[in-house]
Design a protein around this nucleic acid. Structure first.
Lengths: 219, 219
DNA sequence: AGCTCCATGTAAGTCGTTACATGATTCA
DNA sequence: TGAATCATGTAACGACTTACATGGAGCT
């Protein structure tokens, strides 16, 4: 339910086509990691927002000899209201829904090596995320990202600091998250080492606890 | 795509009805926070797993004068294979998809008080989560949860430590996550205070950046 | 002529939520 | 007799993914 409002916020920054929104969303908001959305979803959602009266589409010609058109979306008054309403609303957070933690709770169905592989992949993924986010925060602080620049251009200078600071704070939180995940993966690797040391005779490839099949009445 | 496998893991611990699985999943794996699933989803998924041959349903009578039946699910050989396959597989993590971070990046559309309310709600939510998870880790370490006990009963004593340790590690990671969120929310509150102090004349209720509606060609 | 980018969609399917619906069992 | 719990589903809808499909614009 958040893509709607992220789109409204992006549109507020200036009239944009679905193509541009998809590109921007998957860079700035998503940084290709946090919330990637397919163009198919964005186009259909824009049509819905239009039907709901939250955005307005201006059909514009493309190119010089305009044989095709594009649709530039703008915020309507209702859309601006909805954007403010969303910011003020307290939603209950969705569950964390992280498969890595579900799997971690059941690692005994694999070998110690399998467990190590999971934690190493987890660490590698969040190391990359952390690095990407750190680059992004620096760009935000330098006010170097196109989306931010477009937004600042339309706002009075005394709020530039606030606009920039909120975005940077969001990304700094994501960096802190990534660091927490990295530390957790490393503690997981330590744990596996301790468990393996306590069971030195167990074959490296064998599941700690082979899944058992119950007696089965023949159907 | 993880509910499938969480169910397989729960079923491995012993034959269970859909009702029992729903209850257990929303306590142990979910702790009502991490991955709640409705019974409707669980029942339909169990039927699908059955059709795929990963589980087998034993139809049993209910009560003494059995006027109704229940279906106790067990793991098939294929199901056990799928469980091991899942543990060994490295999935790419889904995006974080956290609305709180999306919203945080656009807090300039609300007042400073709205921003504070968001961060306070965030902190309160994760403080509760942290406390719940801490209780759960203690219960796991005491081997006091019913699901864990059932699982240990069916496993040889030399792997009890591993089974318990993996689950406790997962929950300790969730505690660390919650602490990171709390710290982020508090830094957010500090940030809002700094921004508000720099703009002391701004009305408390006014949006930092009122959303603007673009000129609209009449349709 | 060919390649990359711009631009917009439809269709099918999975996952998940909310609401609707039913009925037996157990215990006080 | 009534309430809580056990037990199992269907229907409709929204969010999201993957695959399919099309075609102009700009440049070399």
């Amino acid at each position: 339910m958040s893509l709607r409002h992220a789109l409204l916020a992006l549109i507020e920054a200036g009239p944009s086509t679905g193509y541009e929104l998809a590109k921007r969303f998957n860079q700035s908001a998503g940084a290709a990691h946090v919330w990637h959305a397919q163009h198919s979803q964005i186009y259909t959602l824009l049509r819905r927002l239009e039907a709901e009266g939250l955005v307005y589409a201006n059909t514009l010609p493309r190119g010089e000899r305009a044989l095709a058109t594009k649709r530039a979306y703008e915020l309507t008054a209702d859309g601006a209201v909805e954007l403010s309403r969303w910011i003020a609303a307290i939603e209950d957070p969705p569950g964390l829904r992280d498969t890595a933690y579900v799997k971690a709770a059941y690692l005994e169905y694999g070998s110690y090596d399998h467990a190590r592989a999971q934690f190493r992949a987890h660490r590698a993924y969040y190391e990359k995320l952390r690095d990407d986010f750190e680059v992004h925060v620096e760009q935000l602080e330098d006010r170097a990202t196109p989306t931010l620049q477009q937004r600042l251009r339309r706002a009075s200078p005394d709020v530039h600091e606030a606009i920039t600071a909120f975005k940077a704070h969001a990304y700094r939180g994501l960096i802190a998250r990534a660091r927490t995940e990295i530390a957790w993966a490393e503690q997981g690797l330590d744990l596996v080492d301790r468990l393996a040391a306590a069971n030195p005779d167990r074959p490296r490839d064998a599941p700690v606890l082979p899944a058992t099949v119950h007696k089965q009445d023949k159907a």
